[in-house]
Simulated assay, not measured.
Amino acid sequence: MVTEKCNTNCIYCYAKRNIRREMSTSEIANIFRKLSYSGIINLTLTGGDIFARKDWYDIISLSQYAGFGYLISTKSILEEADIVKLKQLGIPQVQFSLDSISPKVLKKIIKVGSEYVEKLKVMFEMCTKHNLNISLRTVLCKQNSNIKDIRGLCDFVNMLC
């Protein structure tokens, strides 16, 4: 967990948002070195959300330099420039957590505005354009586990394929 910061505010989140101190890039690099020396080969870069850090590119680069394979998990809407940077780093895939496509439901469970879904569509188009694969994950809770929401999410995913 490289940060407790996040660009969403999920009702089910375990991150302790009141933590003020965050590890520096050099502290993270030191941890990567120690993990690499001890034989660890895979990391999951999560948080909070790594993309809530300004130095996310450096952190991913450092993890690559330390020799790790990893999973990047996010709910952040990535800009095209971010997608290009990920591809330049050789990242083939990003896990994206999508709990609903209903703006009303998303406002309730992850506290985002009504523009989130439209921005998400643009992001997925940019990922396709730049050949960055997206693995979708969903957290079901009482606010999004009815058949209408699940069907809507499935229809959205099918539209993208």
Results as ranks from 00 to 15, higher is better:
35 L>T: 00
46 T>C: 12
11 I>M: 05
144 N>I: 04
84 V>K: 10
13 C>G: 01
49 D>V: 02
104 K>Y: 13
81 A>S: 15
89 L>S: 04
51 F>V: 07
59 I>N: 02
50 I>D: 05
97 S>M: 00
147 I>N: 15
141 C>N: 13
6 C>A: 08
74 T>R: 07
50 I>G: 07
145 S>R: 13
84 V>P: 03
119 K>I: 03
36 S>A: 09
60 I>K: 02
51 F>Y: 08
69 G>I: 10
122 V>D: 13
128 T>H: 15
131 N>A: 14
64 Q>M: 14
89 L>K: 03
48 G>P: 07
133 N>W: 02
90 G>S: 06
102 S>F: 03
71 L>G: 11
154 C>W: 12
138 T>A: 05
118 E>L: 09
56 W>N: 06
32 F>K: 00
64 Q>I: 13
142 K>Y: 12
52 A>G: 06
125 E>L: 11
62 L>P: 00
64 Q>P: 01
101 I>G: 00
145 S>H: 12
137 R>V: 09
4 E>Q: 15
4 E>P: 02
38 S>L: 07
97 S>V: 05
53 R>A: 04
40 I>W: 07
13 C>L: 05
22 E>P: 00
76 S>D: 10
68 F>T: 01
149 D>S: 08
63 S>V: 02
13 C>F: 04
31 I>H: 00
90 G>M: 07
95 Q>L: 09
46 T>S: 15
103 P>N: 10
114 S>W: 07
18 N>K: 03
161 C>T: 12
83 I>Q: 03
57 Y>G: 08
62 L>S: 05
57 Y>M: 10
156 F>K: 00
41 I>Q: 14
133 N>T: 11
7 N>K: 07
69 G>Q: 11
159 M>N: 14
65 Y>Q: 15
72 I>V: 12
52 A>H: 07
63 S>I: 01
126 M>S: 14
32 F>N: 03
117 V>P: 05
